[in-house]
Design a protein around this nucleic acid. Structure first.
Lengths: 134, 134
DNA sequence: TTGATTTTGCAAATGATTTGCATTTGAAAA
DNA sequence: TTTTCAAATGCAAATCATTTGCAAAATCAA
C-alpha cells in the first residue's frame, strides 16, 4: 500500500498536478510524458503536454520523481525513486524493476575512493528476458 | 596503453570513421557528438555532424561504444565501454569514471532473481565532488 | 469575494538527432 | 593499376521531443 505522495510545500494543488502524480504512483515502470498524457486522456482528463513537462521538471527538482533514459529510445522516462533501477530486455523492451538495489552497499566505497558525497544513482541493466530467450 | 580499436568487419575504413574512433579512444570521459565535432575541427579535420551521428550509431550497434545520458543534459554522451560508469557532480558537472564497477558481482544475482541473461549495464551516480563541497 | 500570483493551454520556437539525395570514396575484381 | 559499384559522406531539409512566451484561468490567502 503505497502512501499517497504529497505535492511539495509552496506549490498549488491543481487537478493537473494531482492527476500526474497519481499516474506516476500507479505506474509499474518508468513512463514517458506522452504515456502520462495518454493515460490521462483515457480517464477523460484533458491536459496539455507542456503542463506535464513543466510538472515533471518540478517534481524532479523536488526529488519526488527521477528521470532516466533507455538506450535506443528517444524520450525520457519518469518514475518514483523506488522504481528508478531496472532491467530492460534488449529484444522486446520489457522493463522489470530491480528492488533492493545492491548499489547502496557500494556508496561508502565510492565516497572513500573518489571523495564524492553520493546523493543518488541510476542503474540500467540490459539483457534478454526469459520469454525472448526461448 | 590502450590497444587501438579496429573498425568492425564489414565496414569501410574511412578517414572520418578512424578520426571519430580516435577521439573516443582519447577521451577521458563520455563525450557528446558535438564534442567530437569540435575536437576534430581543432585538428582541422572537417566532418559533418550527420556523419558523426551515423558512425556513433553504428559503433553502438556493434558494441564498441556506449551511449548514455546525464541528468539535466539534453544531449547524449558516448564512450568506450570501460568508461561507461561514472560519477557526476551535481554542482559543477564534473564527471569521474568508476573503474572496477562492483556491479559485475551482482549479475548472477540478477539472473537468478529475474531470469534475464545480462548483456550490459550502465551506472550513473550523482553526488557532490570534493571541490564543490568545500 | 477579491486580488495577487501561480498554473495552464496553445501555438510557436528550439535544438539535438535523423533523413533524402547527389556526390565521393573504399576496396574487390578484372 | 584501372574499373566498378555499394557504402559513406556532406548538405540541407525534416523530425520530434521538449521548452517557452503569453494571455486566460485557477488557486488560495486576506
Amino acid at each position: 500500500m503505497p502512501e499517497k505522495l504529497k505535492i511539495p510545500e509552496g506549490y498549488r494543488q491543481t487537478k493537473q498536478r494531482k492527476a500526474i502524480l497519481d499516474v506516476l504512483e500507479n505506474a509499474e515502470i518508468p513512463i514517458t510524458a506522452e504515456d502520462i498524457y495518454l493515460k490521462l486522456k483515457e480517464k477523460c482528463i484533458d491536459i496539455s503536454l507542456s503542463t506535464i513537462y513543466r510538472n515533471l521538471e518540478m517534481l524532479c527538482k523536488e526529488g519526488l520523481v527521477v528521470k532516466s533514459y533507455v538506450m535506443n529510445e528517444d524520450k525520457a522516462r519518469f518514475a518514483l525513486p523506488d522504481k528508478k533501477n531496472y532491467l530492460i530486455c534488449e529484444k522486446c523492451g520489457k522493463i522489470v524493476i530491480i528492488d533492493n538495489c545492491p548499489f547502496d552497499k557500494f556508496k561508502e566505497e565510492l565516497k572513500e575512493v573518489h571523495g564524492f558525497d553520493i546523493t543518488g544513482h541510476s542503474v540500467e541493466v540490459y539483457g534478454i528476458c526469459p520469454d525472448c530467450r526461448s
